[in-house]
Design a protein around this nucleic acid. Structure first.
Lengths: 160, 160
DNA sequence: GGCTTAGTTGATAATGATTACTAATAACCA
DNA sequence: TGGTTATTAGTAATCATTATCAACTAAGCC
């Protein structure tokens, strides 16, 4: 469902600029194990910024004996390697297979987090940096509201 | 350190538009107890978006027998009443006495969260709404980088 | 000031998410 | 194929946050 350039069981590009998942890991002395590959794949093919528990459930379908600890350990590791993004939400950490620049929309009714295209705001960034003395390494916009699905089905929403 | 219109032991305005803390609470059948008043005051006079644990420590200086549960309970309640703002961070929930519109800068080195003035982006908001079908109720910008203090003192930072 | 009552507190148990630990296992490389 | 080393499954431990409940107190009223 998400288009990405990371070959899942390699193919593989012999000269291409984008390093494969295996390469990224190998470069750090890390192994691409079966649980790890599946965890990464689950996050990448899920659009709803899953929690660790959600990923665990999904991974178990393909690997019934996987441990919850393995899921946590790998989510953390893959995020540290830049193969995933992680963000804090009110109900715990959430993960994102989309590591490209983009913003987020959080539906206050269903809690789902949607990706929305980011627009570069270099002016804002520069002005911000010069007026505060901060070194701006990154920034993003967070939108809050109600998604299409939740606007239709009224009632039982977490909103007033 | 923060200028606010909420009189701590009332004075009080007899006609002014901004409702006092007591009024806001009373309107909901809530009482302004001593722990509650102190907790609110601590958050409002702290600039660093404190965690519950931080608030607890500060409150204990003035009210040694306060319970941690009381702190959590009130932070949640005060946020629900709109007297405080709360936001999720990687290390847990954080609270903010500044309920006005503003953006945030998170220092990746020391973890501190700074308020920065927000600039209204109604155009962005409208475009976003029409292109996605989402109902945008609110939005904010999050900046990440290194604050002035951390830029000076190099080393021992959480950054690479 | 005292009385009443409904919201609150302090103390602690309970819950839920995340992490640490360890013997056994599976990737990877020569 | 065999050895080395990262990794896993299972589970205990930790940490933040919430629930529970008897005792307390703020707020309204006389």
């Amino acid at each position: 469902m998400i288009t990405n350039n990371h070959s899942h069981h390699s193919g593989a590009a012999r000269n291409g600029p984008p390093p494969t998942t295996v390469d990224t890991l190998r470069a750090r002395g890390l192994k691409l194990t079966r649980p790890r590959r599946i965890i990464l794949d689950v996050v990448r093919t899920t659009d709803a910024h899953p929690t660790a528990a959600f990923v665990y459930r999904r991974v178990r379908r393909r690997l019934p004996r996987v441990s919850l600890a393995t899921v946590y350990r790998n989510l953390r590791l893959l995020a540290a390697e830049g193969l995933l993004a992680e963000r804090a939400a009110a109900d715990g950490m959430r993960f994102d297979g989309n590591t490209g620049t983009h913003d987020h929309f959080t539906c206050l009714a269903c809690g789902r987090i949607y990706d929305v295209p980011a627009r570069p705001q270099t002016a804002v960034r520069a002005r911000m940096a010069s007026s505060t003395g901060f070194e701006i390494l990154d920034y993003r916009m967070e939108f809050y509201g109600r998604c299409g699905a939740c606007r239709r089905r009224r009632g039982r929403s977490r909103l007033g």
